Amino acid sequence: MKRLFQLVAIMLFAGAVQATPIDTYEFQNEANRERGVKLAAELRCPQCQNQNLHDSNSPIAKDMRIQVYEMVEQGKSNDEIVRYFTDRYGDFVRYKPAFDPRTYVLWLGPVAFLLVGGLALFAFVRKQRQQTSGAVEVSAADEAKLAELLNQDKKA
């Protein structure tokens, strides 16, 4: 029984362990290393789609990390490196796309939806207040009918 328990525990913990290779790059200086890591964190993996280059284990992310490393070491600016990847993979590769005419909907869309929703909510609440604020007038016939119903309920 003890042996079975050990076997089950090993199987459970073995599934939780994932050995992944770690990329190690020798940058010329600390500033280049920081730039490379920052750029890899700002660029999205085209295959994973929800991970940046720094966190992704896909082969294309590894190739892109190597390309970032090489471009940083060549002395290219951050804008040049980002432009290279956006030209090659499209704006999708950036977590924070540039604010230009092609991405206005992306940047301004949420604000527009929020404004439209706020205006719709304001109009709805205002209409509800106007409908409920008016005094309800009850005719004499309705009062008599109501009194009859109440008396009928007391007799039963």
Score class of each variant (00 low, 15 high):
G75T: 01
G75D: 01
G75E: 01
G75S: 02
G75L: 02
K76D: 03
K76E: 07
S77Q: 03
S77H: 03
N78Q: 09
N78I: 11
N78V: 13
D79M: 08
D79H: 09
D79P: 14
E80Y: 14
E80M: 10
E80G: 04
E80N: 06
I81Q: 00
I81M: 00
I81C: 00
V82S: 06
V82M: 08
V82I: 12
V82W: 02
V82K: 07
R83K: 13
R83A: 15
Y84T: 10
F85G: 01
F85S: 00
F85N: 00
T86W: 01
T86S: 02
T86C: 02
D87N: 14
R88V: 08
R88Y: 06
R88N: 05
R88W: 07
R88C: 03
R88M: 09
Y89T: 11
Y89R: 05
Y89A: 08
G90W: 02
G90H: 02
D91A: 09
D91L: 11
F92I: 10
F92M: 12
F92W: 07
F92V: 09
F92R: 12
V93F: 02
V93M: 01
V93L: 01
R94G: 03
R94K: 12
R94S: 09
R94F: 05
R94E: 06
R94N: 06
Y95R: 14
Y95M: 15
Y95H: 10
K96Q: 14
K96I: 13
K96Y: 13
P97K: 01
P97C: 00
P97L: 02
A98F: 13
A98W: 13
A98T: 15
A98H: 13
A98N: 15
F99P: 05
F99M: 06
F99E: 01
F99W: 08
F99I: 05
D100V: 13
D100A: 11
D100W: 06
D100L: 09
D100T: 12
D100E: 10
P101Q: 13
P101E: 14
P101F: 15
R102V: 14
R102A: 14
T103H: 10
T103M: 05
T103W: 06
V105R: 07
V105Y: 08
V105I: 11
V105D: 13
L106A: 11
L106V: 09
L106C: 10
W107I: 02
W107D: 00
W107R: 04
W107T: 01
L108F: 12
G109T: 03
G109M: 02
P110A: 10
P110S: 07
P110Y: 04
V111P: 00
V111E: 04
A112I: 15
F113Q: 11
F113H: 14
F113W: 15
L114Y: 09
L114E: 07
L114D: 06
L115C: 05
L115E: 02
L115M: 04
L115F: 04
L115K: 00
L115Q: 02
V116T: 07
V116L: 12
V116P: 03
V116R: 07
G117Q: 01
G117H: 03
G117I: 07
G118H: 01
G118W: 01
G118P: 02
G118T: 08
L119S: 08
L119D: 06
L119H: 04
L119P: 08
A120P: 15
A120H: 08
L121Y: 06
L121A: 10
L121E: 05
L121W: 06
F122R: 14
F122G: 11
A123D: 04
A123M: 08
A123H: 03
F124P: 05
F124S: 12
F124R: 14
F124Y: 11
F124G: 09
